[in-house]
Amino acid sequence: MKKVYPSADAALEGLLFDGMTIASGGFGLCGIPELLIAAIEKAGTKDLTIASNNAGVDGFGLGVLLATRQVKKMISSYVGENAEFMRQYLSGELELEFNPQGTLAERLRAGGAGIGGFYTRTGVGTVIAEGKDVKVFNGKEHILETGIVTDISIVKAWKADPSGNLVFRKTARNFNPPAATAGKVCIAEVEEIVPLGSLDPDTIHLPGIYVHRLIQGRHEKRIENRTTRKREAAQAEVGTGSDARAANTKKEA
């Protein structure tokens, strides 16, 4: 099967339709499938239900689909860093299904593994448990959470080979593997496609059997929150540390 496509638009061709469900990898702006998101915005597909830890930030990542009103519902664990996400939710313009972060990851993994549901203690006694089946295991209540299966999944990886075997870069691994498995069709965007057989099997994080379409592209890699110190303060701190070490050395002598 030919999996490599020339562009995000080509990789999504024939898959998009209004009212569809999408699982999207990434955490904040780390490891997000930005090229595929931009292609979905360009296609104008609407009434989307998207399962993702969060919705990027204002004007980037999934935030662009919120800005264009293409998203009907988010299945997420975090609203922060996105003012438009919060505004639409509080004004009733956007449906939101809140999930504890670990529960969301496990719902995606369960969907990909063919598991219809699982019981967990997380959320017991809170609004998360409302309307859900409750069973007692080892004397403690657990609530039923269902697996998530979506029409497509979009993920971002570091390297791939033509068979779709994926390697993720450090923390960019985050939600990408479980999101990838949850989609009936998985489209992955990567920074580099290497020759078949060049990836060490022990370094592959997601087998190619889960990946149906693949693109290589250039990524912006924005920093979500840049935190810096003033140069003068940093230099003074270094100088103070050096003086203290010199004094201690003198005392020991």
Rank of each mutant, 00 (worst) to 15 (best):
M74C: 04
Q101T: 13
E13W: 02
H142M: 13
R69A: 13
G147N: 12
A129W: 08
A38N: 12
K159N: 11
R69I: 05
A157L: 10
E84Q: 15
L12V: 01
E95V: 03
N99G: 01
T45S: 06
G139Q: 07
T150R: 00
S242R: 12
H205Y: 02
P177L: 01
G31I: 03
R231K: 13
H142V: 11
E93H: 00
N82D: 11
I148R: 02
I209M: 09
K184T: 02
R121F: 09
G217F: 04
L144P: 09
N138A: 15
K170C: 02
G59F: 08
L214R: 02
Q216C: 11
D133I: 13
A160C: 07
V185A: 03
G114S: 06
V190P: 07
Q70F: 05
N99R: 15
G19Y: 10
R69K: 13
D202E: 01
A105L: 13
L66R: 00
G147E: 13
A247R: 14
T203Q: 05
I152Q: 00
G19I: 08
I37S: 05
L96D: 00
T21F: 01
G14T: 11
D133S: 13
A157E: 08
G25Q: 04
V190L: 06
A236W: 10
D18R: 06
R107K: 15
I215S: 00
R229N: 15
S24Q: 07
S242F: 10
A51G: 04
K46H: 12
S91C: 06
Y5A: 00
L166R: 10
G25E: 04
E191P: 02
G208C: 04
R245C: 07
G183P: 00
E95S: 08
R213H: 01
I40Q: 00
Y89I: 01
S91M: 05
G28Q: 13
A233H: 12
